[in-house]
Design a protein around this nucleic acid. Structure first.
Length: 320
DNA sequence: AACCCTACCAACCGCCAGGAA
DNA sequence: CTTCCTGGCGGTTGGTAGGGT
């Protein structure tokens, strides 16, 4: 029958046109964000109800942060909530105003890909491709306490290449056993649970994995100076976080551990009372465990070769 | 300039749950 | 109770832009 019905073969797919968006918006204005299938049955659009709903939710809905990169703050929220809820993107998205489940999903997906690649490179350093991801340069920082060099990468077994990091899976601590170093997992929870990497410290790992850091020569020897655990966590101000995001600087943050999550504007994160890191394995590793190591950050640097910063670019002062 | 690689994004697909008939 | 429809959600794919070599 011709009439209202749109035959299956006439269903439109692919990118939406502005006219279609307009029709959809008008429909929502009239009837609200529901009855998606009626849009097609009325012959307004040759799109499935599903498609209409998706378009509205992901692109046309008001107050969406379309085209905005995830801030460091949002990133940390996603990381924490993913650890808490798993891949419940819709749920996680409810804690991120202006973000959709698709946004969160895409963000996480890229992040996982990147992490997998980094860790793979850790196992096979020579496999680093000619094209690196967006240039992430190691820069010397002048931020005092945060003036932290890239930490040494653990030596990973070749089986790392086959690891899958999806579904919030944690490292087996046995992988760390292959390291010649002594890694205090409670100080480097990222090494135990890759989900805890933030973009910033992933960037560090990436550099290390490629062996292109000024410390490459030191990678064969292992030094993992014990680092004072921030109390309770190293907390950077939001301003610092933003600064970090702007500079994409891998050194200036979250080297020790992710920090606690400040309240988001509007108190949208009120349910996130759980500290960032719960013990992620049965080994009892957990960020909450405090290091009783009295070493100071300065002492931390004392363990690195004196010339290790020589090849680093100076970081522009934040005031610049 | 051309090619390659990665990140990002939009959209589709398949599955599932809930409600109506 | 069963079936069908619809909406919601997570996974996946394909296109594109940008940066490096």
């Amino acid at each position: 029958m011709e009439g209202n019905r749109v035959e299956t073969s006439q269903i439109r797919k692919g990118p939406w046109k502005a006219e279609e968006d307009e029709v959809l918006i008008n429909h929502v204005k009239k009837y609200g964000p529901r009855d998606w299938s009626s849009i097609r049955s009325k012959g307004l659009l040759q799109r499935t109800g599903k498609s209409c709903r998706l378009r509205w939710v992901n692109k046309l809905r008001p107050n969406l942060k379309n085209g905005c990169k995830f801030t460091a703050e949002e990133e940390r929220v996603v990381i924490e909530l993913q650890a808490q809820f798993g891949n419940k993107w819709a749920k996680i998205a409810t804690y991120l105003p202006g973000r959709t489940d698709n946004d969160v999903k895409n963000f996480w997906s890229s992040r996982q890909k990147r992490l997998a690649r980094i860790l793979q490179n850790s196992g096979t350093p020579s496999s680093s491709s000619s094209s690196s991801s967006r240039s992430l340069k190691v820069k010397k920082q002048t931020h005092g306490f945060h003036d932290v060099p890239v930490m040494e990468a653990p030596k990973l077994s070749s089986s790392m290449d086959e690891l899958s990091y999806s579904k919030g899976q944690s490292f087996s601590s046995s992988y760390l056993d292959n390291s010649q170093t002594t890694i205090k997992a409670e100080q480097f929870p990222e090494l135990v649970n890759p989900n805890l990497y933030t973009d910033a410290n992933m960037a560090q790992l990436e550099l290390m994995s490629r062996g292109t850091t000024p410390y490459a020569e030191a990678q064969s020897q292992v030094f993992f100076p014990e680092i004072p655990q921030p109390q309770p966590y190293l907390t950077l101000s939001l301003e610092s976080q933003d600064l970090l995001a702007k500079f994409e600087d891998p050194c200036f943050s979250q080297v020790f551990a992710p920090m606690d999550v400040p309240e988001l504007e509007g108190g949208n994160l009120n349910v996130v009372e759980q500290p960032f890191l719960e013990p992620v394995t049965s080994t009892g590793f957990g960020a909450k465990e405090e290091a009783d190591n009295p070493m100071t950050p300065d002492a931390f640097f004392d363990d690195f070769p004196a010339d290790m910063f020589d090849q680093m670019e100076p970081l522009p002062s934040p005031s610049e």
